[in-house]
Design a protein around this nucleic acid. Structure first.
Length: 168
DNA sequence: TCAGTGATTAGG
DNA sequence: CTAATCACTGAG
């Protein structure tokens, strides 16, 4: 069953681990539907989190993170890769879950490429029919660890264990 | 280890 | 306008 609005408006530290084992679903422009199980996520929480894009305040790029939970935050990095995030929490609480990998594709940029996710889906409603997440009852065993690729953050946020992987 | 690649951002 | 930076990947 498709995840509802009330799921996404919870705090990112609840949503990020809960997304492990869920199905990321995408309807392609040619109507084909793809579903992949999420196996790795990371939480980015608020302006105080120095690893979070929103830590310098609201800009054109981070504006979507300030929305009410339940939409997609997609951005372009390193001149070639799109990354997919799920916006969580309430309005004006900049939070998002980075979907780092799904079953079959290890790496956040590989899954966006495989699922044809790009900037046109930035801000997309996850309750609509282009991009959404389903719960099929799968129970995942979780493992927490440090987030990847955020050396620029301060020690506290660099070392905090806000990355979750599956350990079934 | 390191280059590729271009949007985004702060600063003049 | 300029220049630095970057939540990555793949090749060596």
């Amino acid at each position: 069953m498709k995840l509802k609005k009330t799921f996404y408006t919870q705090d990112v530290l609840i949503v990020a681990p809960s997304l492990i084992g869920k199905l990321l679903c995408r309807k392609l422009p040619n109507k084909e539907i793809l579903k992949y199980r999420i196996i790795e996520t990371e939480a980015y929480k608020g302006e105080q989190d120095t690893a979070c894009h929103a830590h310098k305040g609201k800009t054109l790029r981070t504006e979507v993170m300030y929305h009410n939970g339940g939409c997609a935050y997609i951005y372009f990095v390193y001149g070639m890769h799109y990354l997919l995030n799920v916006v969580t929490g309430k309005e004006n609480e900049p939070q998002a879950v980075l979907i780092r990998s799904v079953e079959g594709f290890n790496g956040p940029a590989k899954l966006t490429k495989a699922m044809q996710i790009d900037k046109s889906l930035n801000g997309a409603d996850l309750l609509a029919n282009q991009l959404w997440i389903e719960d099929d009852g799968f129970i995942a065993k979780l493992k927490a660890s440090k987030r990847i690729g955020i050396d620029y953050a301060c020690d506290i946020y660099k070392n905090i264990e806000w990355r979750w992987t599956i350990s079934n």
